[in-house]
Design a protein around this nucleic acid. Sequence first.
DNA 1: TATTGTTATACTCTATAACTATA
DNA 2: TATAGTTATAGAGTATAACAATA
Lengths: 161, 161
Amino acid sequence: MTRGKPPAPGSSPDSVGQLAELLVRTSWRLRRGSSKELAPLGVTFGQARVMRVLARAPEPMRMADLAASLEIVPRSVTTMVDSLEEAGLVLREVDPHDRRSVLVTPTAAGRSVLARMDRARRASAEDLFGRLTDRDRTTLLSLLVALNADRDGATAAPGPR
Amino acid sequence: MTRGKPPAPGSSPDSVGQLAELLVRTSWRLRRGSSKELAPLGVTFGQARVMRVLARAPEPMRMADLAASLEIVPRSVTTMVDSLEEAGLVLREVDPHDRRSVLVTPTAAGRSVLARMDRARRASAEDLFGRLTDRDRTTLLSLLVALNADRDGATAAPGPR
DNA sequence: TATTGTTATACTCTATAACTATA
DNA sequence: TATAGTTATAGAGTATAACAATA
C-alpha cells in the first residue's frame, strides 16, 4: 500500500483528513449556492448538470451514457430526465438502431433555458472562485484534474459491484 | 459585478465552470469512497463527520454548535445524533446551565469506534490524495483554505434566511 | 443470455414550518 | 418575546433489486 509517500510516519498528522473535510465543505457550498441560483429557473443542480452534458454532446445521448458521463447510477438519470421532460426542456426518443436505448435531446425551449442556467451556475461559481487569482485558479484546476486522472478511464461510473 | 478579474471577456471560456464541475465530482468520489469504507462500521459519512467534530472538541458540544460547525441545519444534526445515540456512540445530556440546550458527548464505545472510523476515512482520502506529491497536497490545502477563508466567520451556517 | 431502461422500495441528507420547553 | 431542540413534512439524490422489452 506504499504509494508515493503518503504514509510518511510523523510528517503530517492528518493532512489528508483536512483536505477531505475542506474539499467536501467547499463543494457543498458551491452546490448550495448554485441550487439557490437555479431554483428560480425551476431546475435542480442535478438537472442542470444533465443539461450541460447534453449541450456539449454533438449528438443525442443514451441514458446509460448520460449516467456514465455524470458518474451516477442510471436510475438517478431516469428521475432527472423525467423532470426535464415534464418541463419541456428535453425530448426522449427511442434509438432506431437499438430499440432498447433511449436518446435524450434538448428541445428548443431547453436550449433557450440553458443559457440562463449556465449564467446562474457560473455566477455562483464565480462567487466562490472569484476570490482566487487567475494563476491560483489554474493551479487548482490542474490539481483537480490530476486527482481525477487515472480513474476517468477505469472507474468512470460507480456501477453496481 | 466586476470583482477581481473573473469576467475577463475572452480569456477563459468557462474556467470556473470546469472548476465547479471537477470540484463537485472529486468531492463526490471522496464521499462515495468514504461511505463504502464506513458502512461496515455501521456509520454514515455524515455521522462520521459528527464524531470527528465531537472528538476534536475539548468539551461536550451543544446541538446548535454542532450544526454550525458542520455547516448544516440543526434539524439535520438531530437525525444524525439520533442514530449515533441509538448505536451507543454518543450521549445526550441536558445542559445544566441552560436546560433548553442539549450537550452531546462521545461514549467510551464511541471513542473506541472513532479510531476505526478515522482510519476508514483516512484510507479513502489517502486513496484519492495519495496520488499527489506532498508539495501538491500542501498547495491544494492552501487553495481550499483560501476559498473558505472570508466566509468562515461571516456565513458559517446556512441558516434560514 | 445479456443489456437498456424502467418500476418499486428504502435510506441519507437537506430545508421549512410549527410546536414544546425553557429562558 | 426569544432561543434550543424537536416533530412533521417534503424534496433531491442515491442505491439495490426485480422486471419488461429488445438484442
